[in-house]
């Protein structure tokens, strides 16, 4: 019989250690804790009497947890007003993670917007394993690119695109990833970003017979597989538990991938 007391799912209040402004819209909040998480996993942050929201983990090393947050709504506005020493509730890590195999030689990472955060942690792990990394980093404009310096330090081959051409080439990560996949043989492709972009990358990987892992973000409440809010059609699997990182072919087999998701009430919303 399993130990039923193994997991008590409650947030732990931790003081913010420091805050770093990453770009025009993203701040990283650091906490003095280690979650021993794997790339692609997420935590849930709680602001008492405001709300609780999931965030992917951007740093988890040397006793420091870093969560890179884009200001997008009420919760993140309140979070952005906090300073060093203020308390935030954190629980996790939750979900599946990106995985590397020991015999991998070369991989392609494709991140759009703040989807770059979990891929940066994956890139650091891949670097330790001496795997060659091509990294497509894209955003709508130069001021919204995330972790350019961090990726350059890793000696990853960074291919930058912006919608308006203010940095790198004009275009999207789909353009560069498409070229790179035509010219190179990758052991695996990893992608995180807007879902319509992800769907194109997963489709390209499928066409090139290359393995692929994709992060599927869904509205979630509990984070531990009970509330059912993040279940995905067609399989009915929970993206907090059997996801968010899933194989590309699994994603392609899901009726709702790249087509719709569900909001707080469970109502379907088209992409």
């Amino acid at each position: 019989m399993e130990n039923i007391f193994k997991n008590i799912e409650q947030p732990i209040s931790l003081p913010i250690k420091r805050v770093v402004q990453e770009n025009a819209n993203v701040k990283t909040f650091y906490f003095a804790t280690s979650l021993k998480s794997k790339p692609g996993q997420f935590v849930i942050m709680w602001l008492p009497r405001i709300d609780e929201k999931p965030f992917s983990i951007a740093f988890d090393e040397a006793g420091e947890l870093g969560l890179s947050v884009a200001k997008v709504g009420h919760f993140t506005e309140k979070l952005f007003a906090l300073k060093d020493g203020d308390l935030v509730g954190i629980r996790g890590p939750y979900g599946t993670h990106f995985s590397l195999k020991n015999d991998f030689k070369k991989i392609l990472l494709v991140g759009g917007g703040y989807g770059v955060a979990p891929l940066a942690t994956l890139a650091e792990e891949a670097m330790k394993k001496n795997i060659d990394i091509d990294f497509c980093n894209g955003a709508r404009s130069k001021n919204f690119l995330l972790f350019q310096e961090r990726l350059k330090k890793l000696k990853a081959n960074v291919y930058t695109t912006t919608d308006d051409g203010t940095a790198g080439e004009v275009g999207t990560v789909v353009d560069t990833a498409s070229k790179l996949m035509a010219e190179n043989k990758y052991d695996s492709v990893y992608t995180c970003g807007p879902e319509l972009m992800e769907k194109k990358i997963v489709g390209l990987s499928h066409d090139h017979h290359t393995a692929c892992q994709v992060s599927i973000e869904r509205y979630m409440k509990c984070g531990f597989g009970i509330c059912g809010q993040c279940t995905i059609d067609s399989s009915g699997q929970r993206m907090c538990l059997e996801g968010p990182i899933v194989p590309g072919d699994f994603a392609l087999a899901q009726e709702e991938f790249g087509r719709f998701h569900r909001g707080a009430s469970g109502k379907k919303i088209s992409f």
Partner: peptide, 22 residues
Amino acid sequence: HAPNMITFEGGMLNAVGYSNPG
């Protein structure tokens, strides 16, 4: 609003508030 589900030694505490699409 969340948190609406947490657990403790004896089980779970929830206040989801009948979220549903109607």
